[in-house]
Design a protein around this nucleic acid. Structure first.
Lengths: 224, 224
DNA sequence: GCGTGTGAACACATTCACAGCA
DNA sequence: TGCTGTGAATGTGTTCACACGC
């Protein structure tokens, strides 16, 4: 079974094949493996990798098994090899150009964030509507008007956008993003966006994450 | 069944009772309900609420049923009432003081983020180790040295911290946070933290989110 | 009629346990 | 012996379908 057929479609129009939960763990495995690789660790077993991340060994093996056979019995997995495989699966073995929509507080922080580049993402353009930032340069990028998005998308063959505008502006900005031909949005605005189902959407709501944390703390102390 | 017994412990030492997935949807419901409430919407049915968020009506009803009976047959749920109930469940009906650890790029953006206050969180202190920011004032808060954390925690009765330092500094910072008596960490550093199991931990890795988005886009286009 | 609350049925995800390979 | 890959068993979460209340 090759990687290509193993993912997504099975030709019959049915959906999943690879559970969503597995894919999200893939990113965690990748992060940990890169960490190990930097510490000169050549191979790792499913049990050790699992222990490091809080999963069982069986789960680690089964997760990888969705995509092929990457391990060596008696040895484990070769870190560098597995890193390449996971990147290939995620599609991040090649760099993705990205446009940032919204250059306020959060947008500027994201622009300065080194972690994106490290994982194969390159912010190549920034747009906004606010005259306060239009034309200014941040991290070497001049902020363009959002109306130029279709052109920018075409020029850089963009497929994904990071949306980091205030909640009130999010729906409009999302509309413009969709019209520009982009098919993936990482949304930081605390608003539920409705996108056609051929467009991918990931929502990150910082306040929601804090709420989840609060609940967990609250609960452990029996509500006090 | 009162709310208090319904959550967490059943006295036997067994764990879940309320699935984690349910709790994370609770935050989404809350956000949507607050949105509806602001648009003067008095009541909402499980089917409409579900449609707005992409869930089935049954799931919405079952989620709430974990915590009690909040709906009115033939009517639906009263928005304001449900908002209060969810806040009570999450523990955010009272404001949570929070300390920010790390005042770089990301930390400063989080400090300026209005969304936290809106959901009942108040950043009351900021600490760092970098001389470049120590003593400076951001959003009305003076940046203290991280060594002062135990004192700060006591003074404000803090229970949760937001960790926003570079990956290389994360483990040390986390140690100091744990020693200060804090029992909940929202970690933005792309590093797996190991914390005792009485401490709650939520990890937000921005690059991982982009990876997940990339995979989803990649997949939909059959890998091209 | 409309809409909740909920046991029962179903689908999905995780863990177990073992055959097989280095 | 150490460790992978995987069917079978278990466990968890979601959806169905219907009794009941407004």
């Amino acid at each position: 079974m090759s990687i290509e057929d193993s993912i997504i479609e099975d030709g019959s129009g049915r959906e999943p094949l690879v559970p969503k939960a597995v894919v999200s763990r893939l990113s965690l495995y990748l992060r940990e493996l890169q960490h190990l690789s930097r510490s000169e660790q050549k191979t790792i077993s499913s049990s050790k990798l699992g222990r490091a991340l809080g999963f069982t060994a069986a789960q680690v093996r089964k997760d990888f098994a969705y995509f092929g056979q990457f391990g060596y019995p008696g040895i484990g997995y070769r870190c560098d090899e597995l890193i390449e495989q996971i990147k290939k699966i995620l599609g991040t073995n090649k760099t993705w150009p990205v446009v940032l929509v919204g250059c306020g507080n959060m947008g500027q922080a994201l622009l300065g964030y080194r972690g994106f580049a490290k994982q194969g993402f390159d912010v190549v353009a920034v747009v906004d509507v606010d005259k306060g930032v239009l034309g200014k340069t941040y991290q070497g990028l001049v902020v363009d008007h959002i109306d130029l998005l279709p052109e920018i998308v075409k020029r850089h063959s963009l497929r994904v956008a990071i949306l980091a505008v205030p909640a009130t502006a999010a729906a409009d900005a999302a509309d413009q993003i969709l019209k520009s031909g982009i098919t993936g949005i990482l949304n930081f605005a605390p608003v539920t966006l409705n996108v056609p189902k051929n467009v991918s959407l990931i929502e990150v709501d910082l306040a929601m994450e804090l709420e989840q944390l609060a609940f967990s703390v609250f609960q452990k102390n029996q509500g006090q």
